[in-house]
Design a protein around this nucleic acid. Sequence first.
DNA 1: TCTGGGGTCCTAGGACCC
DNA 2: TCTGGGGTCCTAGGACCC
Length: 444
Amino acid sequence: MSNSISEPSVDDAPILHVDLDAFFASVEILDDPSLRGKPVCVGGMAERGVIASASYEARRFGVRSAMPSMVARRLCPNLIILPGRFDRYEVYSRKFHDIIADLTPDFEPLGLDEVFCDLRSLRRLRVQPLVAAAQLRQRINDELQLRSGIGLGRNKLFAKLASKESKPRIVDGELVEGPGVVWVSPGLEARWLEQLPVRALWGVGPATAAKLRKLGLNWVRDLAKVDRETLARHVGSSLAASLAAYAHGEDYREVVVDREVKSVGHDQTFARSLEGSSELIEAAKTHAGVVARALRDQGRVARTITVVLRFDDLTSISRSQTLPFGLDDEVAILAIAEALIESVDLPQSVRLLGIHASSLLGRGDNHVQLSFALHPETSKSRERAQDLSLERQIGHEALRDAVDEVRRRFGRTSLGTAAELKDEGVDIATQRGRHAFGPERTDP
DNA sequence: TCTGGGGTCCTAGGACCC
DNA sequence: TCTGGGGTCCTAGGACCC
């Protein structure tokens, strides 16, 4: 399939995709060499866990990422399942990105272990994509002791398909090495597409694949023939446009450098489902803290807070509230989340709670400096505190209004008295005592 | 066998403004 | 009295990716 005889120029292969092999599992093996050669996975160990990453030894047993851990254990009784250590993976991911950055600054990470590169700015350096790819792979191997696969093509579509083809494979339970670097030459694009199932395309998951199957569209070549309006009626106009383009080998997605984060959140599936809002609110304290820390780490504030609940039957609901100003403080985020949680009827127990923050602003762009006013460290300095008193006042009132607004929207009773709020506002500023704006317990 | 946690994007409907 | 069209924002849900 690949054409490694003639040397493509950057114009023949402008997009490069690198994908690290079994990334999380490989890092665990590097940190504990006694794991080498054993079936190792990273994932949830509990009943409700799933596999995030599987070593090739584990894959020989049929273990795959996204597979429930219970299933994986059944397939491979000796499977070693490790909890994720994402701080560690981020260290490796940064080193990975540093190596990429030595090749070109025009790269776009996807998660921790994949990167798209746009090689076009290297045209005048007469960089040869296949050579650059082989060197890149060698450096990743030498400096990180991590294996990888690299794909080259005219666009993201072919680069990604090629990197998949470059990987090792399990054939009859045995590991077969891949070519490591694969280029889809323009002359071979049509033949690649011909043999692909629709599921291989970006954006086609289980639900869309099922819709397409009903339309008799099982292969990419079928998509190339179907009428666009028909397709749009079934999968929406945006996806229909993408799929039609992919089916003809076109992909208009650019390599986006420095993509801005648009939301941060924290989800947790409980080993035992929670019952009732008080259990949820207790759990939400941790969530609010994680989200607030993530926001502050990034110097951002969030105007929208969303609570997600997943019930035992795996259906989910979300409730959100957008404020006229941004938050990055756990007490404030918790106050909104609590009101949202209390607005929901809970017909069944809850297996997952999520708190998400979106509509992000730079901290400096926030009109009401609520986060600043609420930070405990700001109260250390007397004179600063004096300066901040007005902002703090505004912050409290605005937050109170926002919590009120949630309850008004969902038809609950309003919050307690202003006096209560003012008292508890001190608690907010000092981070002592119970959290502020606790739920009013005077429902009639 | 029974489905995580980090995200992104899309759609559709309603409110509101001009 | 009845009613437009466009634009923007917000909400809720769904699908997808790694």
